[in-house]
Computed example of a mutant assay.
Amino acid sequence: MSILQVNNIETFYGGIQALRGISINVNQGEIVTLIGSNGAGKSTTLKSISGLAKVKSGSILYKDKAITNKPAHTTTLLGMAHVPEGRKIFSTLTVKENLLMGAFSVNKKNLIDQRMEMVFEYFPILKSRIDQKGGTMSGGEQQMLAIGRALMMNPELLMLDEPSMGLAPIIVEQIFDIITKLNKDGMTILLVEQNAYQALSIAHRGYVIQNGEIVLSGKGSDLIENSEIRDAYLA
């Protein structure tokens, strides 16, 4: 069953067209990845879905409900969580305070506590750093915190923008292991990545974007074997 449908959207920054008729589909329970070079339109696609970038034309449906150009806080309340590129944690707040920011719409303390314990199950390091300020943590720990903050919303769809950016290879492996585990536990994931091999290795399906257009799509395993993809992104 489709949880997200993006239909022929076009998005501009001023007079510059960033997306040119982008259409993607994400089914419930899938990991779907969007790969491409810098400036191809990957991040803009996520921002258009979550309401952070204004769509000029086309439509976006989440669980068959129109969400085109809905404010970001509205899409969050519907069950979507967007972890932006660069992590964007609150550097002066502690780990606990950052996580609480992710539960801004939850009024029941016992529910907040349950979700925080769930986050700690995925990221035990965060529990040991609960009173540490986010800005003093390593890049990998900050990425874990950014994902943990999103999980506090208990999303059905988790959108991750470049979660491996700037991280050491061993930390990248840990992050992708967690993404896979989240998916096995039932979470649908839309993943934007420059690390094409890592992304396609765990994705059920993938889309390749160039200059704001989808130029290729297919199973993750098939795209890894595609000679054009290998030459452009996996060499």
Rank of each mutant, 00 (worst) to 15 (best):
N183Q: 06
S201M: 05
S201Q: 10
M144D: 13
F12S: 07
Q142T: 15
G15W: 07
G58W: 09
K184G: 07
E30R: 04
V106P: 08
P169W: 11
E121F: 04
T92P: 00
Q142C: 12
T74N: 03
M101F: 08
L200I: 13
K42T: 15
N211K: 04
N8G: 01
N226E: 04
D185H: 03
N25W: 00
N27D: 15
M165Y: 12
S57L: 03
S43N: 05
L99P: 15
L19T: 12
G36Q: 05
G79C: 00
L216N: 09
G220L: 03
I170R: 14
G41T: 10
L158K: 05
M137G: 14
E141W: 06
K108Y: 09
G14Q: 04
A150P: 14
Q194M: 09
G134C: 09
Q142L: 10
I178S: 01
G79R: 03
D113P: 00
A18N: 05
R87S: 08
K181G: 00
E10A: 07
S138L: 07
F176E: 13
N154G: 00
G14H: 05
R129Y: 10
N154F: 03
E10G: 06
N25A: 06
I112K: 11
N69G: 04
D231F: 01
R205C: 02
D113V: 10
G139Q: 09
S37P: 07
I3E: 10
N38H: 04
G206E: 09
T11G: 10
M159K: 02
Y197P: 00
Q210A: 05
V32S: 01
G218Q: 02
I60V: 15
V83K: 09
D161T: 14
T76Q: 10
T45Y: 06
G148S: 06
T136Q: 08
Q132M: 11
G51Q: 04
G134P: 11
K127Y: 05
Y122V: 00
P71W: 08
L126K: 00
I31K: 10
I112M: 05
R20G: 05
G148L: 10
M152P: 15
R230P: 08
T94D: 13
L223K: 02
K88C: 05
